[in-house]
Design a protein around this nucleic acid. Sequence first.
DNA 1: CATTTGATGTTCT
DNA 2: GAACATCAAATGC
Length: 219
Amino acid sequence: MTRDAAPTARRSRLGSPLPVKFYDRPTELVARELLGTILETRTPDGVTRARIVETEAYLGPDDPACHAAAGLTRRTEHLFGPPGMSYVYFIYGMYWCFNAVTRERGHGAAVLIRAVHPITGIDLMRRRRPRAHRDRDLTNGPGKLCLAMGIVGEMNGTSLRRGPIIIRAGDAVSDADVVVTPRIGITQAAEWPLRYLVRDDPFVSKTPPQFFRRNYEAG
DNA sequence: CATTTGATGTTCT
DNA sequence: GAACATCAAATGC
């Protein structure tokens, strides 16, 4: 019943925005540290929040799988932009993919968010994903999470601190719970172990069976 | 469970 | 014209 009890209790509910340092350090380290942070979207439909449980690092022009390898084009404008911004692109004629831009302006590196674990706005996600029969299918892939959270091309090049896509602090993921594997769905530099995921999380995307013949473990 | 296929359209060669 | 950082449904074990 003290005067300031209510504001104090209310304050700690949301993590601070942009808890990860995006510049002047290796992109694969940013991919690792983004595990466990909270992805939030604000649209006219409402707010969604979800825990990031799977990421992939794309290192820049010297990474053949990275869009930056094609150089500066209209598509990659924001990939080469300053860190801490979104890079949203259209793929296979139907889907959006969402990245967090890392490194300094002109470098061309980013982290693809591949899967998230819903926390807030699950009913809204269900309405946006009518084909998903199970909740685990709502957000267990890069195209699926963009549909569920309302991420579209208009959000390309926006601040991950100010929105409409915001990354907030969440519960840390220990090294023992981090699994590293090759990246998925690419042909160039396919062996590079740059995919990071939270062990045993039900919302992680499907790992190709051939990966299990090798024993990929925490890095 | 694993593997294949069709849908769809922008981007770059 | 080919490639594409995908998804869902269908088919093969």
